[in-house]
């Protein structure tokens, strides 16, 4: 059964430029997919195709069960979009912006008014509700934009680089709002260049580069895919460091690196958590006391760079 977002062989060409070169996606209902990629990878174009703002050159896509080309009206009724540039009217107040969107969704005036108050509360914008949005900070504008996308409680939400240009505090607030949405069962597709963001918010990640999905999986799977895990430990008694080194040598796939002053050792391994428990067991058996031990997985940054060949496409993100 196709998911709430389903795309097959999606292609979008602008003249000679191919922005999206055959993307397949499937997001089951209630799941969060992170579309991760460098600038110009085709993330925004993909979102614009799925939200009916662009017609695909070829390929098909359904959102909430409706075909984006054949029934764009039905798709629009089921989705919320929060774009890369917060699209709120700068000369209207926060309240006026939300009411306008509500009325355009076809809500009656009273319903739009009530829903507006609810959203202003929820996104902590009450104090600024009657100020023009041009006076808002970047974070406030983003929250207002997100609120605008949520006026009719869409079943599928698209968030295009939701935290671009936000300070850490605002980003955290936005993440919490997004996590709440996901917890309520909204299907989400978010694009991001921040690996940390995808790691935290997404159930699944599709890594996009040059218009194609080059890897997909859960954040954990992607990290495992590149291997390069290591066991890191610190021995309590620096005198036992020789023993610890020879012990690690038996488990690691390369020579451990040793820091004799701090008693810290590190070795690349293949076995994951099971191997770690074996190492701990052995350490206990030989009576080597340790302060700290852990399995260190590669960060998504490392995964990302290894997948995209470390040379993100440098062209500007396609805005069309």
């Amino acid at each position: 059964m196709p998911g709430a977002i389903h795309a097959e062989g999606l292609v979008k060409e602008f003249g000679k430029v191919t922005a999206v070169a055959g993307v397949d996606l499937d997001v089951p209902e209630g799941q969060v997919l992170g579309l991760l990629g460098p600038n110009g990878a085709g993330k925004t174009t993909t979102v614009r195709l799925l939200t009916t703002l662009l017609r695909p050159t070829s390929g098909t896509a359904t959102v909430a069960g409706h075909d984006v080309v054949r029934s764009p009206e039905k798709v629009r009724r089921a989705i919320g979009l929060s774009g890369q540039f917060a699209a709120v009217d700068d000369r209207l107040t926060g309240r006026e912006n939300l009411r306008m969107v509500g009325e355009l969704y076809g809500m009656r005036s009273r319903a739009a008014r009530d829903r507006t108050s609810e959203l202003l509360d929820q996104f902590d914008l009450n104090g600024a509700a009657d100020r023009r949005s041009s006076t808002y900070s970047g974070g406030m504008r983003r929250r207002l934009d997100l609120a605008a996308a949520l006026v009719v409680r869409p079943s599928v939400m698209f968030l295009d680089e939701p935290s671009a240009g936000l300070d850490p505090g605002s980003r955290l607030m936005l993440w919490e709002a997004i996590e709440k949405l996901a917890a309520e069962g909204t299907t989400l597709l978010l694009t991001t260049q921040y690996l940390e963001e995808a790691d935290r918010l997404a159930d699944n990640i599709a890594v996009v580069d040059r218009g194609q999905v080059i890897a997909r999986g859960t954040p954990g799977q992607l990290k495992a895919q590149t291997g390069n895990q290591s066991i890191e430990m610190t021995v309590r008694d620096v005198a036992r460091i020789e023993d610890a080194t020879s012990l690690l040598l038996r488990f690691g796939k390369a020579k451990p690196t040793v820091d004799g002053d701090s008693g810290r050792l590190s070795v690349a391994v293949d076995g994951g958590a099971n191997l770690l428990s074996e190492v701990i067991h052995e350490l206990a058996a030989t009576g080597i006391e340790i302060d700290d031990i852990g399995l260190r997985r590669p960060t998504l940054d490392e995964v990302f760079l290894s997948l995209t060949g470390g040379t993100p496409a440098n062209s500007d993100e396609e805005k069309r």
Partner: peptide
């Protein structure tokens, strides 16, 4: 083909979409 049908937005608050009146 069976498809996941999303719930329509809170129906009682919404005017019939389409049509001259909505436009």
């Amino acid at each position: 083909m069976t498809v996941a049908v999303a719930p329509e937005p809170t129906a009682q608050d919404v005017l019939a979409a389409g049509g001259t009146l909505k436009s």
